[in-house]
């Protein structure tokens, strides 16, 4: 039934597009594995189902993008994988370990940069180190290096409000990377930025992922952004959220903005958009 559902509103896939309906024996000891994970908010009569049972697997080092209409439970999904929110049913495993509490091996980037206004940039980047009670001195070089990587060299002593929105968001990406987590979770990280900055940030993020080899789970509203960044795109249905389809993106790792003119890119964007058109649910 699930397999039928996933291809329901989609034409027969073209040769270069593979709908990953059943994954071939996902490894349970590496990557992120979700089995039967669902979430229902509230109790008694006020029960609001947010997510239908989900089963999928994210491999190590994969750039995994979730795209879906607003209110489909994307952020809930991210919080559950981070261990901030317990699932109502099902289990989440990261590297074979069941997630029951925040596991610390993740870096999170939200839509807002959420920098602490009383800390300067370098101290904001070092915040995970303080939270984990690790020696700051060991990570100072790494923090500076990360800031250099995202073009914020020389801004270490500035306070957040002295930086533009795009710069703040880049600082928050450094913060998510400073403790060298295996996984990076991004909840509409560029949603608050203007279109031009957003494209730049996409290219930068793509480069960061290539150079660091992190597993990235990114959530977005934007279909082109999803396809541009992803190795795999998970398309979600309307609330309560479920899996409409999972697509491989056969565009190779090295991507520039030119990739957006690639017929495969255009085809895939159109195909994903169709999911929402038929449900007329894209806000």
């Amino acid at each position: 039934m699930t397999a039928a559902m996933r291809t329901m509103s989609v034409d027969q896939p073209s040769a270069h597009l593979r709908v990953v309906s059943e994954q071939s024996a996902p490894s349970t000891t590496s990557g992120i594995n979700l089995s039967g994970v669902s979430k229902t908010y509230g109790t008694g009569d006020g029960k609001v189902p947010s997510l239908r049972p989900l089963d999928f697997h994210i491999n190590d080092g994969e750039f995994f993008v979730v795209v879906g209409p607003s209110g489909c439970g994307k952020s809930t999904l991210l919080k559950m994988i981070s261990g901030l929110l317990p699932p109502t049913t099902g289990e989440i495993h990261v590297d074979g370990n069941k997630v029951t509490e925040p596991h610390g091996d993740v870096g999170i980037v939200f839509q807002n940069a959420l920098l602490l206004p009383w800390r300067n940039i370098i101290n904001n980047v070092l915040m995970p180190i303080d939270m984990k009670n690790l020696p700051r001195a060991d990570y100072m070089d790494r923090a500076k290096q990360l800031l250099k990587m995202v073009g914020l060299e020389g801004f270490e002593k500035k306070l957040p409000w002295q930086l533009s929105g795009g710069m703040q968001q880049r600082a928050s990406i450094c913060r998510a990377l400073v403790h060298d987590p295996k996984i990076m979770m991004m909840d509409e990280p560029f949603g608050a930025l203007d279109a031009m900055t957003r494209e730049k940030m996409n290219v930068e993020l793509s480069r960061i992922q290539r150079t660091t080899g992190k597993t990235i789970l990114l959530i977005t509203h934007s279909i082109p952004e999803a396809v541009f960044l992803a190795d795999k795109v998970l398309v979600m249905t309307e609330r309560p959220g479920g899996i409409a389809a999972i697509y491989d993106v056969p565009l190779g790792r090295e991507r520039t903005l030119d990739a957006m003119a690639n017929p495969i890119f255009i085809d895939l964007v159109a195909r994903i958009r169709k999911h929402f058109m038929t449900n007329s649910a894209l806000d």
């Binding site: 919080k79 981070s82 261990g83 901030l84 925040p102 596991h103 610390g104 993740v106 999170i108 939200f110 807002n112 959420l114 602490l116 915040m127 995970p128 303080d130 939270m131 984990k132 009670n133 403790h179």
Partner: peptide, 23 residues
């Protein structure tokens, strides 16, 4: 306090006390 900010600090595995003092 922005609940996302608290979530962020909690996801860094900060203890309740530490998160409270820092955020």
């Amino acid at each position: 306090v922005d609940p996302d900010m608290v979530d962020l600090a909690r996801a860094m595995k900060g203890s309740r006390f530490r998160v409270f003092c820092a955020v």
